[in-house]
Structure formats: structure tokens, C-alpha cells
Amino acid sequence: MDKLIISPAPHVHSNNSIEKTMRQVIIALIPTMLAGFYFFGLGAVIVTAVSVISCVLFEYLIQRFLLKGPTTISDGSAVITGLLLAMNLPSNIPFWIVILGALFAIGVAKMSFGGLGNNPFNPALAGRVFLLFSFPTQMTSWPEPSPLSLQYVDAATGATPLVALKGYAGEVPSILNFLTGNIGGSLGEVSAVAIIIGLIYMLWKRTITWHIPVSILVTVAVFSGILHTANPEAYISPTYHLLSGGLLLGAVFMATDYATSPMNARGMLVYGVGIGIITVVIREFGAYPEGVSFAILIMNAFTPLINTYIKPKRFGKIMK
């Protein structure tokens, strides 16, 4: 008989793997991506492709030539970062800006902290916020939705619903348009239905738990509901809050990022409530019409603190 293998228990493993988890997230993103492609046409395809390719390429180059270690691009995490970054950009943004965003997301926000699992901030959001500060004009000139158009940077622009709701410019679209995604905005944030399909898929596959998305959405609904009831003139109604801007995209895909969210159910609830409150505060009282990205990044910073002080529900109490 050959030499036997000795190892500590357990001797079996579930078929979970990083690749499998990442694949599930990518599948969940497909409806959102397709909705973006439909409403923004060629521009959306170009932005998405450039973003994904440059994210994967930067990760490969950094691991190969800077860190001189093994490359892990096959695990799919760079693809997700690329997809999420693209979902957060307007579809008429010049591709070199996308490349810069990808460089920041992968190079600064992810790899400089030690790669997958060690980044304190969501790389895609960090990339997005970096671009928002660096190229405010390009980042806030949203194209009007025009199904299957072949225009890219020269697409006609308009205001996003949140800008319109705040009374700056433009008209507020109907709820149906909100649900399908026939509104202006970043290419992944417009279609509520597509995002919810992704959410259901991820919950079904147990890629994520319900805690973060539900706590964010409930908090936003309740908090904005209170404000709206108090003064309907000054504050936007909760329906619009939930459906407009990057709230759904953020709550489902960005806030649930493994590395940057708390690691137990109670912590996740605190984190979600925090994001919800900060989002509404920024939207209602801040200068920016949109606040989800900032809210998530701020709560990312609190994640280590939440992990330290909020522990999971233990089995059995401690007796003195």
C-alpha cells in the first residue's frame, strides 16, 4: 500500500470556492448589465468592456511585475471590480477616464493593501469616488436613455431623477420608468427590476445574506418616510429614494462586498442602518444629489470597529 495521507479533521470540504462565489456575483450582475446595455447602447458596452479588461490587466501586471508573486486574476474578483466600476459610471464617459478609475480601484484601493480580502474600502467605489473628484464634469453629465443607440461620448445628456427631484433641473420620470430603467444615470443603477433579480439570485445561492441590503433599504425608507411626512414640500418621498440613484445597486452589490462589510449578522445590521442614514442625510441635506457611494465608503471605514465591538450571537450565556 502507498503512503497514506494524514491530516487533521474535517476530511471533507464543501464545494465552496472563491471562484464559485465570484461567478455567482457575476451571474447576478448580468441582468443589471444587460439593462444598461439596452438603455445606453454602444457606450455602455464600451465602458463596461474597458473597465473589466483594464481591471484584470492592472491586477495581472501588479501581481506579475510589482509583487512578483502568483497571479490570482482567475478567481474573478478583478472582473467583479471592473463590472461594478462600470455600473457606477455614466455611459458617455471617455474610455481613458475609465482606465484611470480602474488603475485607482485595483492599484490603490485593492493591491496596495494586500489584494483580495485585505482592502478596507470597496475598490470599485473608491475608483468611482476618485473619478468623481477628479473629473466632476464628465462624471455628472448623464446621458439620456435611448434604447440600443450607437452613440458613445456624444450622447445627448440630461439630468438624473435625483437632480430633478431636488428641483435643480429636468422632469421627474414615472415609477414604471424607474423600475425598468428608462431614466438617466450611471449605466448600472437605472433598472430597479434587474438589480432585484440579481439580489434574489444571490440570496437563493446564499452568496450573500439578507442582512445588509434589507437593513439599508428599510432604514432609507423609514428615515426618508419620516422626513417626507413631516414636510412633503422639502423632502423627497421614500419611493423615489429607494428607486433612484445608486441606492439599490449600492445596497445589493456594493455594500455587500465581503472584504469591506462586517462579519456577523448583528454587525451587518448596524452597518446597513449606518449606510441608510448617511445616504438620506447626504441626499437631503448635502450639496451632492447622490450619497450612496460616500455612505458606503464611510461605513467601510467603520467596519473594523463594528467587527471589534459587535460580536455574533453566541451559543449559551456565560454563567458566573
Binding site: K3, L4, I5, I6, S7, P8
Partner: peptide, 9 residues
């Protein structure tokens, strides 16, 4: 001589 292969940490 080695009698078995250890496959743990």
C-alpha cells in the same frame, strides 16, 4: 524513512 504524508498546516 517516511511512513505517511502529512497534509495539514
Amino acid at each position: 524513512p517516511r511512513m505517511n504524508d502529512y497534509d495539514g498546516v
